[in-house]
Amino acid sequence: MGLISSYRMRLRRRYWRARAFRRRRQLRVVRDRTRSFGPGAILAASTVRNERARLPYFLDYYRAQGVDHFLFVDNGSDDGTCDYLAAQPDVSVWRTRASYADAAYGVDWLNWLLRQHAHRHWCLTVDVDEFLVYPFCDTRPLRALTDWLDASSVRSFGAMILDMYPKGPIGGRSYHEGQNPFEIASWFDSGNYMFERNPMYGNLWIQGGVRARTFFADRPRKAPALNKVPLVRWHRDFVYVSSTHALLPRGLNLTYDAGGGEKTTGVLLHAKFLSLFVDRAAEEAERSEHYRGAGEYRTYAGGLDGQTDLWCKWSERYINWRQLEILGLISKGNWA
């Protein structure tokens, strides 16, 4: 990494910071409880739109893991999401009606909130349908992980998206509020992931899984990226540049080992393919507020109805993190 490329990256980081700064006015405080948490608190940040049904389980899941405070951006919900969040004791909510796409799919808003509130905190940036699973998560809270990362001088923790799906039609069993989504969507693809190093940011570009297998088998390049760096010991100068797929400075993206070893990593179990999704896909395709003009959603809306079955005979049923470790999807690294 030469001086010139370092400088270019610095400019790029400034650009993202400037974007976040410009869009700060789009955010209106609904409930700000950020004074309620102390220096060592673990935070979670997320953008939501009409996710009322998913929220109770989401909050409980991460509370149990040890998240101390949640930062939410509500992007024009009309199903009571905002009121529900504002009523929670450990949640701060901002609200905006501005365009999700124009805010780089929420990245600008979150960058701004993280810069304001997450400096020197471990912060987990996830969507409400993403559930972090890391080695030993059944016996050790998130704090054990972040303390260990601190002790090892590691600032970021990689966790790729693992798409979960039900056996049988997606619309077959309806999801009810508060339910563990993985009671329904308990299956995943275990060994069809593709990796490539992104020379620009140094992160791994991961594609594959059930979405590549079923929706993008004939145009794999367009398959959605699955790599994420959701857990970062935030510094006010850091920025997410493309959803949570990559950050700047680039060193934060090196969550994999290039020398043959394995680094400690987790997955984000992705509870996308539930009954809630079928209607949502059509709506999002219409709204066109997602990545690449919601091309992905248009694909789903075209190839998907309540009857679609993503399951195949080699699908794995999710058991626990040890299973994922054996399959090679996550690694304990040297955390024992």
Binding site: A159, Y256, D257, A258, G260, G261, E262, K332, N334, A336
Partner: peptide, 18 residues
């Protein structure tokens, strides 16, 4: 654990080992 971190599992390409 040290071996996993240092040498990794041969033949595995993953988000942890590339």
């Amino acid at each position: 654990a040290n071996e996993r971190r240092g040498q990794g599992r041969p033949g595995l390409y993953s988000q942890a080992r590339f």
